[in-house]
Design a protein around this nucleic acid. Structure first.
Lengths: 243, 243
DNA sequence: CGGGACCTTGCGGGATCCCGCAGAAAAAAT
DNA sequence: ATTTTTTCTGCGGGATCCCGCAAGGTCCCG
């Protein structure tokens, strides 16, 4: 059994290396990659089916790397080892995990033992391991309670990218009015909606821009999510009939 | 001489600790704090005038911590040790550094030697040390060439927060039209401006929202900058005469 | 089958945004 | 001190956004 580490921080990389050797005596080789690109290549070349990776790397996003890796070999087992449990990350991961795949998500703030336990659970026992904190976020997010629908999240991304109502309608195959409906819904859920009678601070906020701001502050959006969305958008723009 | 470390990652903390002891034999005590809050308190209590800190911590932003520390004791020497050289960070730092203060900014990706050299330069030689990469960004940013004026940066933040033109005018003591002028200027510099005759992709983008998006993508803005701006905003809102 | 909950769509209007035009004021250059 | 450049400001209009209202449409449940 070989394990591939994809992580851009050298300290964390060597720490991981040590933890893997300690937790998995049956492991007979640890490979290291310092960004998503070489990570993908190594995964492809070495056919390693066991990966530990960081989200948030400078060269190529962890989520993108994971997506292509899983696209090529869906049975690959991936443990995401991340600093944060931003909703944007969690949502991004659960969006790309293939059905029936074995994976994990543990925070870097977790203890030694938790990490080693997760390594054994995923790579040996074939069991998913999601950190308590992450799981809580996931439940809250995907459950209806105060969580965001896929449609709402989608339109949030669209306005974060700076698209107009018309462009969104075009992209999502909706009428302009429907787009606006979803926007209103989003504004309400984000707590941005202006209560009408209120003359005090009425008109202080541009709802569209404000929605994006609070989404960022709540970590519903983050840089890598925006980056992914941007590449998706340019791809879509490219295959649009100009005009 | 005592040195205070403010850094939330345990691995990096212990690495720093070791580096400090190796590079500064005259150092007779290293304190550690794992977030900005306890860092500020320790700095105040122990009167330590030598600090190494990370930007980007979960509890309290490094820049905010540095601001309050420098406000109390401007002669404190701070070495910022960060993962990234986002323009948002660099700008945030150079905005709060007191005149004549000794400080440094080195990236975590720098070599052992560079870090140790920086430690000696700042704490012993009283000499500022800015990483090459960071310095390059700083020059490009503060110089006129493709850089952003303070006014432009200010209004960028205002629209990123979701304020309306009117609110911005009120806040910055300008007429609405002037705000719009600055916005146009910003749109042009961000490369967001719609060339008029272009019917192809005309109307695809909401300039205001798009500007924020590209600012984020270019790392002109990031989460912590937005967070700081938000607290500033709420403070301003609180002392506004409602109505 | 009928009723209810939900989503979609069109219409219309008020508010806001984007911006060209042009004069006034301020700052910088000569 | 005068010219030049930049910035600020008001006016006005077209485009966009925000949203109430109302007429379908789909899906589920009794």
């Amino acid at each position: 059994m070989k394990v591939l580490i994809i992580e851009d921080d050298p300290l964390h990389r060597s720490y991981l290396n040590e933890a893997i050797r300690a937790a998995l005596p049956e492991c007979d080789g640890v490979l290291e990659a310092e960004n998503g690109n070489t990570g993908e290549r190594l995964a492809r070349d070495c056919k390693s089916a066991h990966i530990v990776m960081d989200l948030q790397m400078s060269q190529r996003n962890g989520i993108e790397a994971a997506r292509t890796i899983w696209k090529e070999r869906p049975e690959t087992r991936i443990l995401f080892w991340s600093n944060y449990s931003d909703e944007a990350y969690v949502r991004g991961v659960s969006r790309i995990v293939p059905v029936g795949a074995v994976y994990g998500y543990v925070l870097k703030s977790a203890s030694d033992d938790r990490l080693k336990l997760a390594l054994r659970s995923i790579f040996i026992e074939s069991q998913c391991v999601i950190d308590r904190e992450v799981r809580g976020m996931q439940q809250r997010s995907l459950g209806n309670v105060n969580g965001f629908t896929e449609a709402e999240y989608e339109i949030l991304i669209d306005i974060a990218l700076g698209l107009t109502d018309r462009a969104i309608a075009q992209r999502r195959n909706l009428s302009v009015r429907s787009v606006q409906n979803r926007l209103q819904q989003l504004y309400i859920k984000l707590g941005v909606h202006q209560p009408l009678g209120n003359q005090d601070d009425d008109g202080r906020f541009n709802l569209r821009a404000r929605a994006v701001a609070v989404a960022f502050l709540r970590k519903l959006l983050n840089h890598s999510a925006l980056e992914r969305a941007e590449t998706d958008l340019t791809a879509w723009l490219a295959r649009q009939p100009h005009g």
